[in-house]
Design a protein around this nucleic acid. Structure first.
Lengths: 197, 197
DNA sequence: ACCTGAACACCGTTCAAGT
DNA sequence: ACCTGAACACCGTTCAAGT
């Protein structure tokens, strides 16, 4: 009774990961069920909505992102930790194509199964941002929601085939909007990161 | 023979505008045909693809954007003209929800009926950017594609319901990534725009 | 020339019927 | 309890048949 259900769950999750990796976030639920050799209604029993499926698919990735935040804030100055984590966060949005749309809309919808994940991301990002602001390296007129917004926008952008090759450069542009200009505030600037392409 | 076709075209375009205004860029083509009291195949005869329909819907908006660029570069310093035009461009992306996705993907697809419009936008934006770079107010390590990318990303972002209320602030953040920091280069700075929220 | 209706292969949702 | 198949109302595409 419960044993086969558990097996179905794991199996469905595995093939859903494959199908979504191939066809992106708006892959056909029917197709997932078909490739899992399971009735379509069975898929919907385990994951009543597309968001619920992605919550299961992305949970481990988000957990990893939160652990990385803890490590980074211990091992690096706040500003560098913020940038390094932001990098990882953008990479996370590449886990499946279309993830940014899902996460961004979930952030505004407490009913979404992805709501908790998006809030977790926003919260941990906001913590790193706050520390960098206290250090004086991140601009003061931003909050966690802004950071989450920029992360989503950048993730969406470099998920577009035409802009993917410019990912590093676009990351650099957005990052420069987050950080306080080094000439105006940071008197002890090491000047190591002044590369202008 | 040709008279009724012409009437159909105008009528279709008008109701398509209404339906798309209501349901966004992925509105049902069938629904548009239905509300125009016309066969679905007739709609596809006039607009063989969704992009072709949007090319017709957006053409006048893009033309207006190009005229505004000419006016702005005559009446304002290059940096301010760039920012003012960028503002208009982001507003343009609000003409119908989902326009950014279409324009961004068209930019990479010469076969798309929207390709010419996206290139036009990129080109005129690139011109304003270049002038601001020559003036020293826009950062040097950017080109028209980057500007188009940031425009698309910002338009997409503030098209998400949760981030729409922060449109002005997010615009300010992105703009600060485009402009050279006023403390480091602009010696004749008027200091009028130093509002930090 | 231009339009139409119908057929086709899809989609997500729902639910009575099976074990 | 858990699963299944079928029915439903959609979608975009295509094309033979009408005028």
């Amino acid at each position: 009774m419960r044993a086969d259900a558990k097996k179905n769950y794991g199996h469905l999750l595995a093939v859903a990961g494959d199908v979504v990796a191939e066809h992106g976030a708006d892959a056909s639920m029917r197709d997932i069920a078909r490739r899992a050799d399971v009735g379509l209604a069975t898929l919907f029993r385990h994951f009543p909505t597309r968001e619920a499926l992605f919550e299961a698919l992305l949970r481990t990735n988000v957990d990893a992102l939160m652990e990385q935040a803890s490590e980074l804030e211990c091992s690096l100055p706040a500003g560098e930790a913020l940038v390094a984590w932001f990098r990882q966060a953008v990479t996370f949005t590449h886990s499946y194509s279309g993830v940014c749309e899902l996460m961004a809309s979930a952030h505004d919808d407490p009913e979404s199964a992805l709501y908790a994940l998006s809030i977790a991301l926003r919260t941990v990002g906001g913590r790193l941002l706050k520390q960098a602001q206290a250090e004086g390296t991140a601009r003061a007129d931003m909050d966690g929601v802004d950071l989450f917004a920029l992360m989503s926008a950048l993730g969406w952008l470099v998920g577009q085939p035409g802009f993917a090759p410019r990912e590093d450069h676009l990351f650099h542009l957005i990052t420069s909007a987050i950080l306080v200009d080094q000439g105006s505030k940071a008197k002890t600037a090491t000047r190591k990161g002044a590369s202008k392409r």
